[in-house]
Simulated assay, not measured.
Amino acid sequence: MSRPPHLCTCGKIVAFGTRCACQIASTRARNKRHDANRPTARERGYDSHWQAARKEWLQWNPYCAMCRGKATTVDHIKPHRGDKVLFWDKNNWQSLCTSCHNRHKQRVEQSQ
């Protein structure tokens, strides 16, 4: 059973499961405004020291903590929000695959 198309707020009819071009443009503009005020990765602490620590962590912890797939990211369990002590606390680190980090973990953090 397929679901019917829906009406976008701009007045266009959009197929079920897709987003209207106006919604995509709106999301991109919002993200661009957000990123303009965000410090760079280096300014947030993700420098060469972090890259070395990350590489070593993933060698010892190669599996995603959520799905047990191949981990590619070292995630801070509790967001550090610039706190250098929390940033470098290895008890606050976990290995995640890209999918779990970008989807599941971000949803959890947004709901908190």
Rank of each mutant, 00 (worst) to 15 (best):
R30D: 03
L7Y: 12
A15P: 06
I24E: 06
T40G: 02
L96G: 00
E109S: 07
L86M: 13
D47K: 11
T27V: 03
N31R: 15
H101N: 14
M1A: 01
R107C: 04
V85H: 14
T73S: 03
L7T: 14
D35K: 09
S111H: 06
C97T: 00
R38Y: 05
N31K: 15
C10Q: 02
R103M: 02
C64N: 01
R19H: 12
R38V: 07
G82R: 15
R81C: 11
H49E: 08
T98Q: 11
T40K: 07
V108G: 02
C64I: 04
R107P: 00
A15C: 01
Y46A: 07
M66D: 08
N61G: 13
K55G: 01
E109P: 02
R38P: 03
P79N: 14
Q110D: 11
K90P: 07
S48R: 09
N91A: 15
A25H: 11
N61Y: 15
T27W: 07
S95M: 03
C20I: 15
Q51I: 08
V108W: 07
N61T: 10
P5W: 08
A71M: 02
Q110G: 08
L96C: 00
K78I: 09
R19A: 13
P79W: 15
Q59I: 10
S111Q: 07
D35T: 04
R68Y: 09
T40N: 03
A52W: 12
R44G: 07
R107L: 10
W60R: 13
A36P: 01
R19G: 10
G17I: 02
L7C: 11
A29Y: 12
D35Q: 09
V108Y: 04
S2D: 06
L58H: 09
N92H: 08
S48W: 04
W60I: 05
E43F: 05
K55W: 05
K105H: 05
Q112I: 11
Q59R: 15
R30C: 04
M1R: 13
P79V: 10
M1F: 07
V108K: 07
H80W: 15
N91V: 11
G11H: 01
C100W: 00
G11N: 01
W57I: 01
C97L: 00
C10F: 01
R68I: 04
C100R: 01
S99M: 12
K70W: 04
I77F: 15
K105W: 04
L58K: 11
R54F: 08
W60C: 06
R54K: 15
A71Q: 03
R54V: 02
L58A: 08
W57R: 01
